[in-house]
């Protein structure tokens, strides 16, 4: 049960700044090693269909950077160059500069970094995907293990497995869904779900 002796105080208004702080607090304060956290925010499109779109995300990365790089190196040379090119373009767009990018931008883009970046372009309608399913059913979805991710009905979960993630979790809140992913095998924890309920209990 998520009940505690004292009810959680209402959280402050939802802003991207406060979202970022909550996602960071969730990951940095967890016992488990999560690679990233994303908040998928609910809204309605012109036909009153519920859409979950990018709210904000916090990327921590893998504990073992060497492991991440060795995984990234399994991608083809063409894929590596494509990622670098996209990152350079995104960097130019953000910095507003056409000057050559610094060395950091040209560093190899790992699989989980790429998965996180691509996530910014995604959305889920009518209960689709793991985030949509969690929101639609108001029930957390916890998928742990490469085999379970690979055999998921959700394309995003299958993609996650290809990019080296072993655990993907979607926990619904009032205004959306908190998704966490890890390259480690992490078993279900009520502690994490309670933290999400407290941190993302905004109106």
């Amino acid at each position: 049960s998520a009940s505690t002796s004292t009810p959680a105080a209402p959280a402050p208004a939802l802003t991207q700044e406060s979202l970022q702080q909550r996602l960071q607090a969730l990951i940095e304060g967890a016992r488990e090693s999560w690679t990233y956290a994303i908040f998928w925010q609910s809204s309605y499109d012109y036909s009153a269909t519920t859409v979950l779109g990018w709210g904000d995300g916090y990327y921590k990365g893998e504990e073992d950077k060497g492991k991440a790089m060795s995984k990234a190196s399994s991608s083809s040379l063409a894929e590596k160059e494509h990622r670098k090119k996209v990152l350079r373009e995104l960097n130019s767009m953000i910095s507003g500069s056409t000057a050559p990018a610094d060395d950091a931008v040209d560093e190899e883009v790992t699989d989980t970094e790429w998965f996180f970046l691509v996530s910014m372009t995604q959305s889920f309608i009518n209960g689709s995907g793991l985030p949509g399913q969690a929101f639609f059913d108001s029930t957390p979805v916890w998928v742990s293990g490469p085999d379970r991710l690979a055999s998921s009905m959700c394309e995003r979960a299958r993609q996650a497995q290809v990019f080296g993630l072993q655990t993907m979790v979607c926990i619904p809140s009032a205004n959306g869904v908190v998704e966490l992913g890890s390259t480690e095998l992490i078993t279900q924890s009520s502690d994490l779900m309670n933290k999400v309920r407290v941190l993302f209990n905004f109106n």
Partner: peptide, 26 residues
């Protein structure tokens, strides 16, 4: 990769900045 909507630029800018820090500290 499709273009990133304006609303997501803050997330992207933060990701790129933190990535730069990670690479520098590696």
């Amino acid at each position: 990769m499709p273009s990133i909507p304006q609303a997501r630029k803050a997330s992207l800018a933060r990701f790129l900045e933190k990535r730069k820090e990670r690479v520098m500290n590696a």
